[in-house]
């Protein structure tokens, strides 16, 4: 009898604890969501409504005029062009990053050659070097020496060399890519590149998917590098730069349009995230540099 009492007591304690923790989690979740929710709600109100009630929780019906106003309000820049540019840069970099990282990882795993260990150690060693410490030389070389200001080349091509992703892909191959398959392909007369493209890449799909998502998000969000290279041509500005410009306007402010512009930059990424959250949350712990 006493034992039952103890266990019931214990269960009750655990339940109360769980309930308290649940409430705390709900509060933290609200802190995460409220700013985004306020933004979306505000994007549906007109400028005058926003002046009268800056904080409201009920959506209004002004979303379409606000989105239209983004274009009519800011004639100096085409905001949609910004989204298209970001898409080109992020898409191009993502494809290059995952393909060449998989290729490098494949080369480092499948073949045995003299500098292999040295090359891998090098990749590990440079994984942590942030762009900020090389940016002075990068800008001077790209803009000053090569004259590539306003070009997308310095923003897309460097994606071929992504040490952290090579590291991750190599780890993945080591654990789930049997080298016997390569030998079998050779016996069947498959050449090395075809083996890589039609056997290794399909087998690495999970790793490639996770890294592609991260690479895309990272490049879509990148502001620092783009801001260094895309200096003067407005038609080359990317989405984050557009947002910056829209918010810096001080004449004829239309708050509704500002909120709508910021909302449009967040919504696509949030939608992608919600659809792929399983992969993303699963992939976070697998490497990458953070702030």
């Amino acid at each position: 009898m006493e034992n039952v009492g103890v266990s019931q007591n214990y269960m009750l304690k655990q339940r109360i604890k769980s309930a308290i923790y649940f409430v705390i989690c709900v509060i933290i979740t609200l802190i995460c969501l409220v700013p985004i929710y306020l933004l979306i709600v505000n994007a549906t109100h007109s400028h005058n409504e926003l002046i009268q009630t800056p904080v409201s929780l009920i959506p209004g019906g002004n979303i379409v005029p606000n989105v239209k106003a983004i274009v009519t309000q800011y004639t100096n820049w085409n905001v949609w062009r910004g989204y298209a540019n970001s898409l080109i840069i992020a898409g191009g970099s993502t494809i290059l990053t995952v393909f060449f990282s998989a290729m490098t990882a494949y080369g480092l795993t499948v073949y045995d050659f003299r500098i292999r260990d040295g090359a891998y150690t090098f990749i590990l060693a440079v994984m942590m070097i942030p762009i900020q410490v090389t940016s002075t030389g990068f800008v001077q070389f790209m803009v000053g020496t090569l004259g590539l200001a306003n070009s997308f080349i310095p923003l897309i091509v460097p994606a071929i060399a992504a040490p952290a992703i090579v590291f991750y892909m190599r780890q993945y191959m080591k654990s789930s890519f049997p080298l016997d398959i390569v030998e079998a392909a050779r016996i069947d007369g498959c050449n090395e590149f075809r083996t890589f493209i039609s056997i290794a890449i399909p087998m690495m799909k999970p790793a490639i998917a996770v890294q592609a998502i991260f690479a895309f998000v990272q490049n879509w969000n990148n502001y620092y590098t783009q801001n260094m290279i895309l200096l003067s041509k407005a038609e080359r500005f990317t989405m984050p730069m557009m947002i910056q410009k829209v918010l810096r306007v001080d004449k004829n402010i239309n708050l509704g349009a500002q909120y709508a512009a910021v909302m449009l930059s967040i919504v696509p990424i949030v939608v992608i995230y919600v659809c792929l959250s399983k992969f993303i949350v699963g992939g976070v712990a697998l490497g990458g540099v953070k702030e």
């Binding site: 060449f100 480092l108 090389t134």
Partner: peptide, 26 residues
């Protein structure tokens, strides 16, 4: 062995051009 070099070559070429040289340049 030569394929190993070929597979990792693009990475190192691009890395040297866009990362190592800018670092030295800095």
């Amino acid at each position: 062995a030569k394929y190993g070099y070929i597979f990792i070559l693009p990475f190192f070429l691009v890395y040297c051009f866009f990362q190592i040289w800018p670092l030295i340049n800095t």
